[in-house]
Nucleic acid binder design. Structure first.
Lengths: 298, 298
DNA sequence: GAATCCATTTCAGCAAAACTGAAATATCGG
DNA sequence: CCGATATTTCAGTTTTGCTGAAATGGATTC
């Protein structure tokens, strides 16, 4: 059966008008070109050129030339795209992230990443840790950035960095002037505004504090608005507090347990696409210098 | 560089879900499939299947699969078309013919021809012999059917058949009852309506008769109308008289010179397209039983 | 019209690629 | 964990396609 190679040879000879130049362009000897061409004509059962000097096509040659040129163009394009996909230079990545990372870390990283890869499409969904986990689990997104999943499902978690919690209060709050890390006892008697991230802190004293809190909110925007309005104080990961307005203050906590682990979540047993791999590498590189790291598998 | 073969192997394995079935379909041994696939993955630099049991694709595999399937479909189609063109099952033929052949011989022949070749397009132009010759000479049509060209241009003529002239007169004409071929002398004193075809007759007696005629017309329709109106008689090739109405009669001529040669005209030095060749063969077959034949080259 | 030049084809040998069959290895379902 | 089945590995062989040298063939020049 006729393959791509004879078509390519024929098209080159036809457009060069002679075998010698076509041979040069294809990095072959004229004899190789001659033989391939002859074989092609034999396969077709009819001559493609009018004379031995390959400078005039037969009617058949003209028709085959049109078709062959199109085939080659499409073939080469498609193959280039396949290679680009495989090399991670082309493709689509859907990723989900918790809002803090989506807002503080990813914008710059992704912009940077896409600048050097014109064929890439990235779709970013931001939702809470639970949402990220289920989006990865059901295959809606390939890559998730969130806290480690609690239940050992078919998800694979790798820690990117650990993010220490900070107490967020109004800048006119009595604690705001403290220059030393806070202890849980410092928070006694205050109204703590609960949130999902803080509830995951693995310190008994902290859990007790939050358990007693009457107020809870979900988004960072709401939490900060409540704090600003004097409704209480709250605990947020450092990353969520980096762009804090002047009327609010974020204070470090002394307890080393007051951290949230942030990492990437992949579906177990699925090897990541090249684009995904590239983003992972970029993420690891970007977070290499951020606090303590580690590796967990669940 | 990656060729078509690995793509085909990959697509088959991916859609079969296992190597063994793909091997059967491709008429290869499983080991050949396995090796080709491995080589393909190596070339791409990333795995296409999730596990060794080839029943689940990676993200990359899915993307490559889509593209590869499209490439293969287009490639196979295009190649099939090229082969069809080469075999004369597909293509376009433009041909010019003198009206008598176009009207009496070609319709049935072409209809028949096209019925068995769905991919074919034939364009038929009917004009006089001179017109046919110039259409072939300037490349507007590939094939012409007409009288032999007088000037030895770069045209190639092959006789298809010889068409004897007949005298066309009204059925109530005195000669209409004659049961024997006519001689030029029988026409003495009659008004002969001249026409291009008759003027090419290579008999001195005939030339003399026509030279003395005061009336000349070009199309068969006009000639017959003139005869019917009693304006005179005319000489037409037999083929132009086969569908004559009852009020007109066509009488054979005795002079063996009273014939018109009809044949195919091709541009010299151009090998005919497969479609053209097929039509030529069909034409020769159709005219094999028609009167005397011969071969001339001009 | 012969001589010469340049391109193409032919041919023999060679190298690389691809295939096969057998044996080893891995995976799945009970 | 075992047997059945699928896949991979391996060595050897066939096939394919390429090269370089020599022959052929067409043009061009003298």
């Amino acid at each position: 059966m006729i393959g791509i190679a004879p078509l390519r040879v024929f098209v080159h000879v036809a457009s060069c008008g002679n075998i010698r130049d076509a041979a040069t362009r294809l990095h072959r000897t004229p004899s190789a070109i001659s033989m391939t061409l002859k074989q092609f004509e034999t396969d077709l059962g009819a001559p493609l050129f009018e004379s031995d000097r390959k400078n005039r096509l037969t009617k058949l040659g003209e028709e085959v030339f049109e078709t062959a040129r199109d085939v080659l163009r499409e073939h080469d394009q498609a193959l280039e795209r396949i290679e680009a996909v495989a090399a991670g230079r082309h493709g689509r990545l859907r990723l989900a992230s918790v809002p803090s990372v989506a807002a503080e870390l990813l914008p710059h990283l992704l912009a940077d990443f896409l600048d050097t890869r014109p064929g890439l499409t990235v779709e970013l969904i931001d939702t809470d840790s639970g949402g990220v986990q289920s989006l990865v689990a059901d295959g809606t997104v390939e890559l998730g950035i969130a806290a480690p999943p609690k239940d050992a499902s078919d998800l694979h978690f790798t820690t990117l960095f650990q993010d220490p919690f900070r107490l967020v209060c109004r800048s006119d709050h009595p604690l705001a002037e403290r220059r030393t890390p806070l202890h849980w006892s410092d928070l006694a008697g205050m109204r703590i505004i609960g949130n999902d991230a803080a509830e995951a802190i693995d310190a008994a004293a902290c859990r007790a504090l939050i358990a007693g809190s009457a107020l809870k909110a979900r988004s960072v925007i709401s939490l900060l608005a409540l704090v600003r309005a004097g409704a209480g104080v709250t605990l947020l990961p450092r990353l969520a507090t980096v762009s804090l307005a002047a009327d609010l203050t974020a204070l470090p906590m002394a307890d080393p347990l007051a951290v949230r682990k942030v990492g990437v979540i992949l579906r177990d047993g699925r090897s990541p696409s090249p684009v995904c791999k590239a983003v992972l590498a970029r993420l690891e590189q970007a977070t290499a210098n951020v606090l303590s790291k580690g590796q967990d598998v669940s």
